[in-house]
Amino acid sequence: MVLTTEKPEVAPRGAASRPGAVKLPKKKRAAGWWLPFALIAPAIVFELLIHVIPMAVGIWMSFLKLTQFYIANWGAAPFVGLGNYQIALNFNGAQGQALLSSFVVTCGYTILVVGIAWALGMAAAVALQKTFRGRAIFRTMFLIPYAVPVFAGIITWKFMFQQNTGVINQILGALHLIDPNNPPFWLIGNNAFAAMVIVAIWKLWPFAFLMLMAGLQTINEDLYEAASLDGAKPFRQWRNITLPGLGAVNNVLLLVLFLWTFNDFNTPFILFGGAEPPAGDLVSFHIYNTSFITLNFGFGSAMSVLLLLFLMLVSAIYLAFINRRSRRA
């Protein structure tokens, strides 16, 4: 008895005060066993409330004909099974065709934006890797687009892209790159795609820069010294030291950039003011515009679920690929 009371960290807590505790330690659960569960419960409750339940509701909605006639009384909405999905995936129909073209635009947009934003971020991070006078100024400058509120930044671009009054056509005209009497439109027609890509890259690359710059701090300087003694040129150093050293950062960074860009809503919404040209019709915005504005939540949910499935599929393939590679290495 003396021993058990003197070793409270071994014996179940509070056991000492209970007579007969020594005889029943195996049958009874340790006192306070519920504490970890109780501590984790709020997190689980909120995870359910904030993530899981809304997602489940969204999936359930996609099987309903949840139009304006039923949104005030969901219970009455007729079950249509895969009807909404059939409309979305019928590529001969007008809605399916529009969704497909929006999907293609979004894929092109994502590849360009992620690729260029990553390359710019990498170039800037490597350029600022060595200490030199004024490095802090460059670092700050490069991060400005990330610090500017999204709305303000994109609205400014919208002004700059105006055909008749925008500064971009004025500069291009002054450089004799365009005909000043017939300047191109940037916010309507096919150029809208280029305008949207430029704005998105401007908005996104500082994040890539920031992450890669942080990653570079973890690479040992000695490696570069040794490599240059062996005669490795900067590109070789980058390929054989920097890139592998940033592997873990890149894995996460590319995935995050992909998901953010594919789901981008703000850029087209602010740039095109709620009415996107076909060349700027990103999928999130397309879903918003063809369903929520017109009060057809069931159809919107079906398209959202398709988007979710696609993103999950891409993410899963990507992660499987990454994991296999890192296991091999």
Partner: peptide
């Protein structure tokens, strides 16, 4: 096309 979209999604 506009009419088909309106009809299809309702």
């Amino acid at each position: 096309t506009a009419q088909e979209k309106v009809a299809a999604s309702n």
